[in-house]
């Protein structure tokens, strides 16, 4: 592992996979931000109506579920691919 230079660039497929992982990491952050949006709403009679709040929250909730579902389909079997070294050098390092 250390006696070989790390690969600076990876294959296109690996690159895609890593960006998908980034997306999976980013999704809950996005979720938190969207969930905290109601904190900014004005309250009282002239503020946001309850039905509006319900619709907003359930829509982003459903959107998050859908996004997570799509990501989970693409993130199948995360273990088979190493992230920064080709498999044969890793196997050597294990000797």
């Amino acid at each position: 592992m250390s006696d070989r230079p790390r690969h600076l660039f990876v294959e296109r497929q690996t690159y895609r996979r890593r960006r998908l992982q980034d997306a999976a990491r980013f999704l809950p952050v996005l979720g938190i931000v969207l969930m905290m949006v109601p904190l900014l709403w004005s309250e009282g009679a002239e503020g946001v109506t309850m039905s509006g709040a319900v619709i907003y929250l359930f829509l982003i909730w459903a959107a998050l579920v859908a996004a997570a579902m799509v990501l989970s389909l693409y993130l199948r079997d995360d273990r088979s691919e190493p992230e920064d070294s080709p498999p044969e050098s890793r196997r050597e390092a294990g000797r």
């Binding site: 905290m36 109601p38 904190l39 109506t49 039905s51």
Partner: peptide, 24 residues
């Protein structure tokens, strides 16, 4: 149903921000 929600006594958005974040 949405109309009834707005007409009810919980029809307006009311939120203790601290509780919202803390409970989440």
């Amino acid at each position: 149903t949405l109309a009834r929600i707005d007409a009810s006594k919980i029809g307006n958005w009311q939120m203790d921000g601290g509780r919202w974040a803390a409970l989440t």
